[in-house]
Simulated scan of single mutants.
Amino acid sequence: MRLLLLTLLAATAACGQQNEAPPASTANSLGSTQQSNATEWQTTPSGIRYRRISGAGTGPKPSQTDTVTIHYVGKLMDGTEFDSSFRAGEPVTMALPSLIPGWREGVPLMSVGDIYEFVIPPELGYGASEAGPIPANSTLHFTIGLIGIGGQG
């Protein structure tokens, strides 16, 4: 299910929704809610909002073609969790080229050891398509911890 939810769907249509604010609570299962290393929210030219909430930001960074090992939690903007590697009981290793455009663009901003929050607009997620519990045209909120690059954790 996890790979199904994160695999790029063939049809991703833009829906015209604007960048929304992340859920009110940024506490996550990736560690403490303490955010002393938190950076300010930034926005990429494509519309992904992101910030580092933990980590030094100085380690190796993956490319868009790498395989990465991560822990993550995915939520809808109302806070409904739709997927989590913690619920599955272990981190996952995935090839970035096979994932939604928002992950292909966002994860390479991270360094190994960092935890980031991402708000991904629908056109960089699943667009006008439903994906399991994710409604069409959904803005997605992910908290991602980058554990390793190249399948190494």
Rank of each mutant, 00 (worst) to 15 (best):
G113L: 10
T33A: 04
S32C: 05
I70E: 08
V73L: 13
S84W: 07
G150M: 12
A56H: 15
Q42Y: 04
T93Y: 13
P60H: 13
T58R: 06
G113N: 14
G31Q: 07
L124Y: 14
A88L: 08
L96H: 08
M110R: 07
T7H: 12
G47I: 00
A56Y: 11
A27S: 11
Q42L: 09
G31L: 02
P62C: 04
A11N: 13
S138T: 02
A10Y: 15
I100T: 09
P91R: 11
I53Q: 13
N137A: 11
I144G: 05
T44S: 04
Q152Y: 12
N37F: 07
G31N: 03
L140C: 00
E20C: 08
H71T: 07
A95I: 02
G113C: 07
K61H: 08
G148E: 13
M94A: 12
T139P: 05
I134Q: 08
P108R: 08
Q42F: 06
A128S: 12
T80Q: 10
A131D: 03
L140G: 00
E130I: 06
A38H: 01
Q64A: 11
S85L: 06
G74L: 03
A21L: 08
L30P: 00
P121Q: 11
S111D: 06
Y50I: 02
P101F: 12
G153Q: 15
Y126I: 05
Q35H: 02
Q18L: 10
T26V: 03
S32I: 00
E117D: 10
S138F: 05
Y126L: 08
G89F: 10
P108S: 06
A13T: 14
W103I: 09
Q34R: 03
A88T: 03
